[in-house]
């Protein structure tokens, strides 16, 4: 009888959050579209007007090099330059995920609830909880700020190049990867670790023989997944002068060299598809 009521209460509270969410979502959608269509002055008919259509056609024609002149994607020199930038972008992304991974590995154990409550270190202390809270706050902070904003700040400090881009990408992804990996540590199966502990293993031994082997496959999966995302974003941090394809993309845009843009987009696309394939292959190896 009692279990029945609890079940009902859970169901009701479950219903209510779903219902509240639906109402909240509808209100948000109505208010947002209302705001954009009225005070922001967005007009769909204006956006798809004849004048805009003409501009779009002209833009596309110049992207494909139909407006005269030699298109950049038929020039060997442009290709070699673009491929060099692609190579640089690839290096930036690897560096970024490397920094992210180092930051994550240094913080992930104290950032897991299991470390704070004493499952790993054998005892729960107030400073354990303090460190746990501080690192979790740091994670939220670092992932809430977009890469581009980090890049805008970082570029004040570093000279333009691939290092500031990598640092900006790492700062944002540190929070995401940290959170994902801390959850992996929390979700571990604790039976083998308890067995290790009861046979007299210390903290370091528990880490190397109990936790590390269990978390490695998941960590590598997440690392590769974030690497794919980083590849896509390298072009964006380049916009503010952090090197690679993005920097050239911005320059070509402001010089109206649209065939150059097409070439850079082709390289960018190849990089994204190629890295997806490599990452998929590596992930299959770890499974």
């Amino acid at each position: 009888m009692k279990g029945d009521t609890t079940g009902k209460i859970v169901a009701i509270s479950g219903m209510s959050i779903t219902k509240t969410s639906i109402i909240l979502a509808l209100v948000l959608i109505t208010a947002s579209w209302g705001f954009i269509l009225t005070s922001e002055g967005a007009s769909l008919s204006e956006y798809f007007s004849a004048g805009n259509l003409y501009h779009t056609k002209k833009f596309l024609a110049s992207m494909f090099g139909l407006d005269g002149g030699k298109p950049a994607f038929f020039s060997a020199e442009s290709w070699s330059n673009a491929l060099k930038l692609t190579y640089e972008t690839l290096k930036m992304s690897v560096m970024a995920i490397g920094f992210t991974g180092i930051g994550m590995l240094l913080t992930v154990i104290p950032a897991s609830r299991s470390a704070a409550d004493g499952s790993i270190t054998l005892r729960s202390t107030w400073y354990g909880w303090l460190v746990f809270g501080l690192i979790r706050l740091l994670y939220i902070f670092s992932r809430a700020v977009p890469e581009l904003v980090w890049a805008m700040i970082i570029i004040f400090v570093f000279k333009p190049g691939i290092l500031p881009g990598a640092v900006a990408l790492a700062l944002h992804n540190f929070g995401i990867l940290g959170k994902l990996c801390a959850e992996v540590v929390e979700d571990l199966d604790w039976q083998p670790i308890r067995a290790l502990r009861s046979s007299g293993a210390g903290t370091v031994q528990i880490l190397t023989y109990g936790i590390l082997p269990a978390v490695t496959p998941k960590f590598i999966t997440f690392l590769l997944y974030r690497w794919e995302v980083i590849i896509r974003t390298t072009i964006v941090v380049g916009f503010v002068g952090a090197g690679g394809l993005g920097q050239q993309f911005r320059l070509s845009m402001s010089w109206f060299q649209y065939t150059e843009i097409t070439l850079l987009l082709i390289c960018y696309f190849l990089l994204v598809v190629g890295s997806d394939m490599v990452s998929g292959l590596l992930r299959r190896i770890t499974q």
Binding site: A42, R232, V236, Y258
Partner: peptide
Amino acid sequence: RAVHELVWAWLFVAAAGLSPFAAI
């Protein structure tokens, strides 16, 4: 999804000018 949203935005703005719809 291979192309980042900001790149799409830039292409839209270059093609049809700045409008809330470009961003959306």
